[in-house]
Design a protein around this nucleic acid. Structure first.
Lengths: 167, 167
DNA sequence: CTAAACTTTCAATAATTATTGAAATATAAA
DNA sequence: TTTATATTTCAATAATTATTGAAAGTTTAG
């Protein structure tokens, strides 16, 4: 397989995975493109490579910067902005996790907690609270793991998980 | 807060979370409804409660059954089918994880592996392979954890993760 | 300042994904 | 059987989400 072909396939694969995880396809493709590129790319480079509009590039690149997984880079003698993706996949994992945790897990925990305040002590209410409690427990556990993973140093995930799995 | 109000809010919250995780909103709502219901529900009960069409109920209930998190139940003296969700949230977590792993993570690992076969030994190709390698490493690790979690007994996740986090 | 180079915004439009509902199919009671 | 009841399918349609592209906004050089 040729290198360009492989890069292309990678960009497509990553894009389709992203879709099923609720991430915009183009955002994932832009990220993948930057990840496999050896040099910083301009908005036009991205437009060309992925055949998408200027506005779309702008929106998605900004989202990636928001997520902290892409940054601007300046090239000497050039006026326009260039973008690069951090090549450290661990950092990527951490940032994405952090983002989702904040946007999705924490608000749900908040709601689950609120819902415990049902002022009713029928058996049905008790059953409901039991389900909520279980749900909170699993969600909290997952949240704690993610928290720890985010705060941990680069090798925490690999070393601890490996140890744990071998057990 | 009244019990019904709480149940309703829970169903809505779960539905909106699902959306951002690439799961169909209605599917999540149907599941939530069955989860908080004390008795088995018929297709009509679900149609009524969520104000959705018969076809929609059928599609989503079937998907939930496919995922192994909802099952049919027969009620004496009734001809129609009734549905119940397993109240065990750990089981739910396991099933969902298993499903996603099979449908999404494994195919990606396969592609990443394939892409390593680039017949080029330029520096650029080496960099690309390095990125792919890192990506595979993180993906494999996550996959292994999930595998272990799926196979483990009910308390594995909580006990091990807690131990690990305390470390 | 003014003009050129570049970036951002956002209403219009396209693409995708979910939902409906009625017809077709299946199943069970009479 | 036949009839009534229940389930499934799927083309049409609605709802949602992503993308375009041109106009407005910014920034920098001269």
């Amino acid at each position: 397989m040729k290198l360009d072909e492989a890069k292309n396939k990678y960009i497509q694969t990553w894009g389709s995975l992203a879709t099923s995880w609720g991430i915009n396809k183009t955002m994932a493709q832009v990220h993948a493109l930057l990840l496999v590129s050896t040099k910083p790319l301009s908005a036009e480079d991205i437009m060309d490579a992925l055949q998408i509009s200027r506005g779309n590039v702008n929106m998605n690149v900004r989202a990636l910067i928001d997520w902290g997984i892409v940054r601007k880079e300046f090239v000497v003698g050039e006026r326009k902005e260039f973008f690069v993706a951090d090549k450290d996949i661990w950092e990527l994992f951490k940032q994405i996790t952090k983002e989702r945790k904040k946007r999705e897990i924490e608000p749900v925990l908040k709601v689950l907690e609120d819902l415990q305040k049902v002022d009713d002590d029928s058996d049905e209410a008790k059953d409901f609270k039991k389900v909520l409690g279980d749900l909170s427990k699993v969600t909290t556990t997952v949240n704690t793991i993610l928290d720890k993973a985010i705060k941990a140093d680069e090798h925490w995930l690999l070393s601890n998980f490996t140890k744990m799995v071998k057990k």
